[in-house]
Every structure is written in structure tokens, then in C-alpha cells.
């Protein structure tokens, strides 16, 4: 429940219309002599959906847990709306979170799990039922949580996050374990939260494809360090398509006279052209009009996709705990 808005009472505080942002400054966490998060700094803009990306073991969950006061940072600060989580007067009404490995008592029903959480904030049971309807498990939530599928657990976790009608949502790999239908539902849901309700959403994932259609900004980390951040458009760079033909010179000429940039792409072979557009149909039409055959036509990876692939594939960026032997600093 949002706090009753009162003129002078809220003056100077972050109000709903301005939204609540997140700020991470010099955040570091060491487990023994292993550095899981390393001098990490970034901001999450209010009212936007930000993807928090990184390969397995990059430190995403650890960062989110520090934001939520579950893990004590070795150094640095993680603030939500300018405050530490434990200092928020009614935390669930400011921040809703669904973390990995959040458990449910197997003998307690999902509905009762939510009722327990609701009791901490004086939230009525009617709100619990409202949310169970919203996430689509009103009947199943009356059964014991021990028998829940992964999808039901994720939905229940999401309902818990939304209980206090928070301004900020922190979602840790919300699509994990969901089937394609579930993932589609989750994407639509996040978009709905950000677009229609103006909530700040920070959603983590180790798969770019899982969130790229949903998020506006991205923060990418690897080995606990910031790798890249920016808006989705900035990081994607300009779209490009690859077209393969028998006479690249002739087709290149036709494309250029239609106002598109075209260049030989040696990486892809002698017969490949890289065209500066995202529009496959236009390239195909131009080729047809020019009487040139098309052997292959597909979109090329964007800068962001290449960067992400590099991060996940290069051994030096893999989870250092998983790799064997001594790791080079």
C-alpha cells in the first residue's frame, strides 16, 4: 500500500511521480579471498526497465543481495531511493524483490506464505488474493508449496514481490525454469509493470535473448566488474544484415544506389556483403530488382550480442570458481 501522500510530509523525499532509482557505488564483496563483486558502480534510472546481465557466476545475485541488505558489503554502498534497504520504513512498499533460491516451507500453502509476509506490513488478506489472481495461481496457491512446479514458484515469488505495491522491482532470473509460455507471460508482465505502472525494474539474467525485448537499459558485469552499461539502443549499435550472392560487386552497387551502405564482409567469405539496415525485405527486393540471386539473407549480430557472446565464451570471464587451477589476476 502506498503511504498516504501528504504535501509537506513527502516534501524532500523521493516521491512516486519522480520515481525511485537505485545507486550502486564502489560495491565490493569478498568471500574469503575470493572477490565476487569488485568495485562495482552503476545507477538504475527511475521508471525504466534495466537488464542486469552477466555470465553465470558474474556476481549478479550477490549484488542484488547486497542491495537488499542480505549480504554485508566488504566495501561500498548500495542504495535504493537514497537509502539502505534496512532503513526503508516499510521496505516491501518501496522495493519488491524475487530472488533466486527463495524457499517456501513445503507444508505451508503458497497463500499462507504470502499471508505471513503480508502480516509484517499490515497488508490485508484481500490484497494477497488479488495478487494470486494477477499471477494466475488463485486455486493452486491453496495447496501446500511442497508440490509446486518451478513455474508456480516463480509466480508465487513475483506475487510476494508485488505485495506492498512497490515502486522498485528487483527480479533475479525471473524466467529461470519457465517454459516458453511462462517466459512470454513473464515478459508481458514486466512490460506492463514498467509501461503502465511506471515502476523501476531491475531484472537480472545470464541470457541476453531472454530480456533484450523487454529492457530499455542494460548493465553488464563479468567477474564482478562492470563490463558495459548504457541504453539498449546505444549498445546494440546500428543493425546490419548479411546477404550472400554470386556477384557481390553488382549487388553492392545496386544497394548503394538505393541509399544503403554495403561492404564486403571477409569474415563471412568472399561472396558476403554486410548491409547497413535491419530491413531484410528491402535488401531482398533490391536484389530481385537488380536481377541478382540471393543465396543467404539474415540479420547480423549486433554489437551488444557480440559483446555478450565474448563475455560468456572467453574463459577469462567464466566463473572463476568453476575454472580449475590458478587464475591469472
Amino acid at each position: 500500500m502506498p503511504a498516504p501522500g501528504g504535501g509537506w510530509l513527502t516534501a524532500g523525499m523521493t516521491t512516486r511521480s519522480e520515481g525511485t532509482g537505485i545507486s550502486v557505488q564502489g560495491l565490493t564483496k569478498k568471500f574469503g579471498d575470493f572477490t565476487a563483486v569488485d568495485d562495482l558502480s552503476f545507477e538504475v534510472a527511475p521508471g525504466r526497465v534495466t537488464g542486469f546481465l552477466g555470465p553465470n557466476g558474474a556476481g549478479k545475485t550477490t549484488t542484488l543481495r547486497m542491495l537488499l541488505g542480505l549480504i554485508r558489503p566488504t566495501a561500498g554502498e548500495a542504495l535504493i531511493g537514497g537509502r539502505r534497504y534496512a532503513e526503508l520504513p516499510q521496505p516491501m512498499s518501496t522495493v519488491g524483490s524475487a530472488l533466486e533460491a527463495t524457499g517456501f516451507h513445503p507444508g505451508r500453502s503458497g497463500r499462507n506464505h504470502l499471508r505471513v509476509l503480508a502480516a509484517t506490513h499490515g497488508i490485508p488478506d484481500s490484497r494477497v488474493d488479488e495478487l494470486l489472481d494477477l499471477v494466475g495461481i488463485p486455486a493452486a496457491a491453496r495447496k501446500k508449496a511442497g508440490g509446486y512446479s518451478m513455474g508456480m514458484r516463480q509466480r508465487l515469488g513475483l506475487a510476494a514481490a508485488l505485495l506492498g505495491d512497490p515502486d522498485v522491482l528487483l527480479l533475479d532470473e525471473p524466467a529461470n525454469g519457465l517454459d516458453p509460455e511462462g517466459i512470454r507471460w513473464m515478459r508481458g508482465f514486466m512490460r506492463h509493470l514498467a509501461a503502465e505502472q511506471g515502476k523501476t525494474v531491475l531484472v537480472s539474467s545470464h541470457l541476453l535473448g531472454e530480456v533484450e525485448q523487454t529492457v530499455e537499459d542494460v548493465v553488464i558485469i563479468a567477474n564482478g566488474r562492470l563490463a558495459r552499461r548504457g541504453t539498449m539502443d546505444e549498445l546494440h549499435g546500428d543493425p546490419a544484415v548479411l546477404v550472400r550472392t554470386s556477384d557481390p560487386g553488382a549487388l553492392g552497387h545496386a544497394l548503394e544506389s538505393a541509399g544503403l551502405s554495403a561492404a564486403l564482409d571477409q569474415e563471412q567469405g568472399p561472396d558476403a556483403l554486410r548491409v547497413g539496415t535491419g530491413d531484410l525485405r528491402q535488401v531482398g527486393d533490391i536484389a530481385l530488382a537488380a536481377g541478382q540471386p540471393v543465396h543467404e539473407l539474415r540479420p547480423l549480430r549486433t554489437d551488444l550480442e557480440r559483446l555478450f557472446l565474448e563475455l560468456t565464451e572467453s574463459p577469462e570471464h567464466r566463473n572463476r570458481n568453476l575454472s580449475t587451477g590458478q587464475e591469472a589476476a
Binding site: 534497504y85 516491501m92 524457499g103 513445503p106 509484517t120
Partner: peptide, 19 residues
């Protein structure tokens, strides 16, 4: 210990962060 066993401690502390 039940909170640790069933990993409900996370949800509990998110709702009541002042330990």
C-alpha cells in the same frame, strides 16, 4: 533453523530487514 532449512530466511528478512 527451520528458516534456514527451507530457505524462507530470505523472504523473512526482506519483509523484516531490521534484524
Amino acid at each position: 533453523s527451520g528458516e534456514f532449512r527451507h530457505k524462507t530466511i530470505t523472504a523473512t528478512l526482506l519483509a523484516a530487514p531490521r534484524r
